[in-house]
Simulated assay, not measured.
Amino acid sequence: MPRSLRQSVRADHQYYYLFAIEGVTMEGKGSVRLEGLRKEFGDVVAVDGIDLEINAGEFFTLLGPSGCGKTTTLRCIAGLETPTAGRISISGDDVTHLRANNRNTSIVFQEWALFPHMSVGENISFGLEMNDVTKSEREERVKDALELVELSGYQDRKVSALSGGQKQRIAMARSLVIEPDVLLLDEPLASLDRSLSERLQVELKNIQDDLGVTFIYVTHDQEEALTMSDRIAVMNDGKVEQVGPVTELYEHPKSTFVAEFLGETNLFEGTAHRENGHIKLDCDEINVELNTGAVDSDRLADNASCAFTVRPESMIIPEEGEEECDNMWTGTVQDAIYKGSTTLYEIDVGDRILKVQQQRSNSVRMYSEGDQLSVGFNSNDGEVIREP
């Protein structure tokens, strides 16, 4: 039976109708492919030739700063924006020019978009009612949806009586009750406080794992992306910088943008060359010994420009008597940022500030602003980036 959802949001005495979902049944259900996707708004290129393949049943995240094109990409998939060029396929079908109500997708917005004059149950069942689902089936599916988001028994409550976290769960239930193949989520946790957001991140991932529905999630929050995603596409200036599993992007970034955007890092940029049998990175003010296994010899013939990135947790503050690292400096603690189980130090070594993250324990010495210490890293604990 085809399913459809029409959501209406009342705000400032105006109604906005958001359309989604007409079901299909076929192999590859829930897969999404973008080929050369481009979207222009006048002279502004919001999405610039994106190619992506998203697997059925995957939790896939579009991550990037404001204005990078991630939300526009999501809206193109939903059918809320028409691409200037390119092709969009869902479950193997070309949907590029289909209206939103002819696609097997549903969308959850940051603003929740709930009907304030309806009960929780009426909000969730609205799309089912619009598609002529029988009353008994609607009641059963609403009950199941509320159980899924751990709000059983809330069907008669008023939306105005709900907390922010509960409203977000109801918005999720309303989108899932119509059984979409692809659920699109546009920064749905951005307006929640940090502790609630962290709790809902775990719940979202659990729901996605249980249902096997393809989730495409938009966020600028690196921690959200790292916590929930199977794979991430890091976007910048309308383009995809890198796509891959969480650990691959974090540990093996292919560009300085990805290295710096996806968590804290120490970045050394310069020209690589051979020196006394070793490979060095000349950064003007300092030389850094590189991981020889990560640098191609043929790139050194012309003194290739590259960068070396080291995460703060890979930095070392050696205790007295411990062996020194491949790269060592003496510096002064400029700041010590307490983060509960860890402390992030910012250490001034004269020509730059190095970030060092240490696990807090009784056996590890804690430092304060103004302390003098040695700091460094081993070349195998970093990653060479060869910019195109």
Rank of each mutant, 00 (worst) to 15 (best):
M1Y: 06
P2T: 12
P2E: 11
P2K: 10
R6W: 12
V9N: 14
H13C: 09
Y15H: 13
Y16R: 15
A20F: 09
I21A: 12
I21G: 14
E22P: 01
E22Q: 15
T25D: 07
M26P: 06
E27D: 10
E27R: 12
E27I: 10
K29G: 08
E35C: 12
G36W: 15
D43A: 10
D43S: 11
A46P: 12
L52P: 11
L52H: 08
L52K: 10
E53G: 09
A56H: 09
F59E: 14
L63K: 05
P65G: 01
T72E: 06
L74G: 12
G79W: 08
T82L: 13
G86N: 04
R87E: 08
I90A: 00
G92Y: 01
G92T: 04
V95W: 03
V95T: 00
V95Y: 04
H97R: 13
A100R: 01
N101T: 05
R103T: 04
F109N: 03
E111V: 06
E111K: 08
A113L: 05
A113Y: 02
L114K: 11
M118W: 11
V120M: 06
N123P: 02
G127V: 03
L128S: 06
E129D: 03
N131E: 02
N131H: 02
D132C: 08
D132H: 14
Y154V: 03
R157T: 00
L162F: 01
G164L: 11
K167S: 03
R169V: 13
R169K: 08
M172G: 05
S175Y: 01
V182G: 00
E187I: 08
L189R: 04
A190F: 08
S191K: 15
L192I: 04
L192D: 05
D193V: 00
D193R: 03
S195D: 10
S197C: 10
V202M: 08
V202Y: 15
I207T: 02
V213K: 06
I216E: 11
I216Y: 08
Q222D: 07
E223I: 12
A225S: 08
T227I: 11
S229L: 02
N236Y: 02
E241V: 02
G244V: 03
G244R: 05
H252L: 11
P253K: 14
K254Q: 11
S255A: 03
A259Q: 15
A259T: 15
N266G: 09
L267S: 13
E269I: 15
T271D: 13
T271F: 12
R274K: 10
N276G: 15
C283G: 05
E289Y: 13
N291H: 07
N291I: 03
G293F: 02
V295Q: 01
D298H: 13
L300G: 01
D302L: 03
A304I: 05
S305T: 07
C306W: 06
C306Y: 04
F308A: 01
F308P: 02
P312Q: 09
E319K: 15
E320S: 07
G321W: 05
G321H: 13
E322R: 13
E324C: 07
G331A: 12
I337T: 15
K339W: 10
G340N: 00
S341G: 05
E346L: 13
I353N: 15
V356P: 09
Q358T: 14
S361K: 07
S363F: 13
V364F: 14
M366T: 15
E369A: 13
Q372K: 15
S374D: 11
G382H: 02
V384Y: 05
V384C: 14
P388D: 00
